[in-house]
Amino acid sequence: MSAKTKIVVLHMKELIFTGILAVLGIFLIIMLLVMFLPKDGSTKENAESTGKYQPGVYTASVMLNDSALDVQVVVDENNINSVSLVNLDETVETMYPLVKPAMEELAQQIVDTQSLDNITYSQSNQYTSIVLMNAIEEAIEKASLD
């Protein structure tokens, strides 16, 4: 025998384990690529599936003489969930008795129609309703994605 001749002994068990590990490694790399590479259609779907509003609670202030009154609007992605008054003090409620009924009337219409268009005001609290509608519009503009 010459000094250059080498005998290599391969065990069948080692070959099988090496083959299985190679296949699992290739499978893992393919799965990572599939999971983390962006798809062209996914960005278009996300842009189309976004709603009209940024979900959250938004407020706008109304000044009534020296008192600040906050109008709070709660929205999710596509809906106006509630419209209410916050920081309604007893003195403000006593001095401006039309504020609370006007807000309740407006809130009901806005939540039912999901729009600020075609809102009706009663004759007795028309000006109060207009002031409150301006504050509601301001809060919804803060929530709007447009």
Rank of each mutant, 00 (worst) to 15 (best):
Glu104Arg: 12
Asn81Leu: 15
Leu88Ile: 10
Ala102Pro: 05
Glu14Gln: 08
Lys44Asp: 04
Pro97Gly: 04
Val73Ile: 14
Phe17Tyr: 09
Thr128Pro: 01
Asp117Asn: 13
Val34Met: 11
Asp76Arg: 02
Ala139Arg: 00
Asn118His: 14
Met95Tyr: 05
Glu93Gln: 10
Asn65His: 06
Lys4Asn: 14
Ser144Gln: 10
Ser84His: 03
Asp89Glu: 04
Glu104Asn: 15
Gln109Arg: 12
Asn65Cys: 02
Tyr53Met: 03
Thr94Ala: 08
Gln114Tyr: 11
Asn46Ala: 12
Gln123Glu: 14
Asp89Met: 03
Gly41Cys: 00
Met31Cys: 04
Gln123Gly: 05
Ala3His: 15
Pro97Trp: 04
Asp89Asn: 05
Asn65Ile: 03
Asn87Met: 04
Lys100Asp: 06
Val71Trp: 02
Gln109Asn: 13
Ile80Ser: 00
Thr5Ile: 15
Glu137Tyr: 07
Leu69Asp: 03
Lys13Thr: 04
Glu93Trp: 04
Gln72Leu: 15
Met63Val: 05
Gln109Glu: 12
Ile80Val: 08
Ile7Phe: 12
Ala47Lys: 13
Val83Cys: 03
Gln109Tyr: 14
Gly19Trp: 11
Ser115Thr: 13
Lys13Met: 05
Ala47Ser: 07
Leu33Ser: 08
Glu141Asn: 09
Val75Met: 11
Met12Lys: 15
Val71Thr: 09
Val75Ser: 06
Val23Met: 09
Asn81Phe: 07
Thr5Cys: 11
His11Gln: 09
Leu98Trp: 07
Leu145Cys: 06
Ala102Phe: 09
Glu77Arg: 09
Gln72Gly: 06
Leu106Gly: 05
Ala22Thr: 15
Leu24Ile: 09
Asp117Thr: 14
Val74Gln: 11
Pro101Asn: 09
Leu69Cys: 06
Thr120Ile: 14
Asn46Cys: 02
Ser2Gly: 15
Leu21Pro: 00
Ser115Pro: 04
Ile80Met: 01
Val99His: 02
Ile80Tyr: 01
Asn118Thr: 08
Ser42Glu: 13
Glu93His: 06
